[in-house]
Design a protein around this nucleic acid. Structure first.
Lengths: 234, 234
DNA sequence: TGACGATCTCGTACGGTGTGCGAGTCCTTT
DNA sequence: AAAGGACTCGCACACCGTACGAGATCGTCA
């Protein structure tokens, strides 16, 4: 059995000024947030910490392990309200928004999240609090798992798509408007024969990207919560 | 403006027996489906086609462009029923299942899907047919976009998570049961203090992975469609 | 004080990656 | 026969993750 990063601790206090896992994680996080996954290499991270690239391997077995730590760091930013505060429905809404904004702050997450299990301490804490929240809604035990999973999947799916378009704008290095109109022009060429698509595209261009994405998110989340609410056993 | 792959065509009939974009895409697809994204390199793909790696660059500008083609290929496998056949609700359910099973057939998709815009011809066709289907439900024009987007995000989010666990089992090279129990044992160590998590974990282990994942998918999709249905303007 | 072992750093090297470039080969058209 | 387009591909470059082992620095104990 592999020994996981989560259960490996520093043996004793460092003898002298050294690197630390926290330091490495923090530096890697700022690289990821500003340059994306493709911008993170061990050599670059080493340089940023004024250290040799391979020094990092004392604190982390592989780059993938480092990314596991970074992902769990994000889960740690999400807050899941206690059900006593405002009840399940409002709590779930808040949870959804918190999850969304965390991913928007760390847009590299969707690209890596689906390639590894999330079993770090923060993921566990978040999951546990989510179960408590959804448990208060009156679902059966089994439905608690299903409902929480649905909401998380919806939120992560929506925000992944959202982040994808935001990131593509950013990477293009151009203004939102100019990028959108470029893509849409292209889409028009390819989709000339699809009038519904053209109409939808025209609808979208007529509104602000930011507020459109937010509205999209809220609309679906509300609908999903409606559907879940009606499943609570009376 | 970048010239997109979608609008670049072969000028004339090939002079002699040559490679072709279709051939390359097909070979790359089987590599992706069997070995995943990490298994696809231009050199390996070249070898598979009995060609030099750099020969491929005649047909495709970059590896990313090739992946764009592959993604659009997947969108081409999804069928979106006409609303006349069974109405919106049944059609949306069918669409969801079709989307899910396509991703299950091509488990590499979530890892790359969120890094680029889907504006290929098949994506356009799928989107257009989706709009037609949801248009028949009685939504306002604006709500059509929102509702379709929500369903797609939910389905892709759910199936991405699903594929992630399935792939991790596969890559571990061990039996489903042994992998699951390993992960759960680890989770237990990390999450000792979270009784709700432990209970949830125990619930999950007591059931078949396959049917559990399917039930999860259907439960949330049904709830979402319920919520959407109640939003149709009367 | 001196020696030992643990902790930590890092230069070098290996085998991989995507792909730019330019030379070379084939086939059609004039 | 000559020209020119269509296509193939070997070489080279810069970059990647990381295994390995030599070295540096420390606390501890004889």
């Amino acid at each position: 059995m592999k020994d996981w990063i989560w259960t490996r601790e520093r043996k004793a206090a460092p003898a002298r000024e050294t690197l630390s896992r926290e330091q490495i994680v923090a530096a890697a996080m700022t690289i990821l947030d500003t340059e994306g996954i493709a911008g993170l290499s061990m050599r670059k991270l080493g340089t940023k910490l004024a250290a040799g690239a391979t020094s990092l391997y004392w604190y982390v077995d592989t780059k993938d392990d480092l990314i596991d730590l970074l992902i769990d760091e994000v889960w740690g930013e999400i807050d899941v309200p206690e059900p006593e505060l405002a009840g399940w429905r409002a709590g779930a809404l808040l949870f959804g928004h918190s999850l969304r904004s965390a991913v928007l702050r760390h847009p590299w997450l969707p690209e890596v999240m689906y390639t590894r299990p999330s079993i770090g301490p923060n993921a566990m804490s978040m999951g546990s609090r989510g179960l408590v929240l959804f448990g208060a809604a009156g679902f059966s035990e089994h439905e608690i798992d299903l409902a929480l999973g649905s909401v998380m999947s919806y939120v992560l799916g929506t925000v992944s798509a959202e982040v994808a378009t935001r990131e593509m704008v950013r990477k293009s290095g151009r203004s939102q408007e100019s990028w959108v109109s470029d893509i849409l022009e292209q889409a028009k060429v390819v989709a000339g024969d699809y009038p519904e698509m053209q109409k939808s595209v025209r609808r979208r261009t007529s509104m602000d990207l930011d507020s459109g994405l937010t509205e999209n998110f809220v609309f679906g989340l509300d609908a999903l919560l409606d559907g879940l609410e009606s499943r609570v056993k009376k």
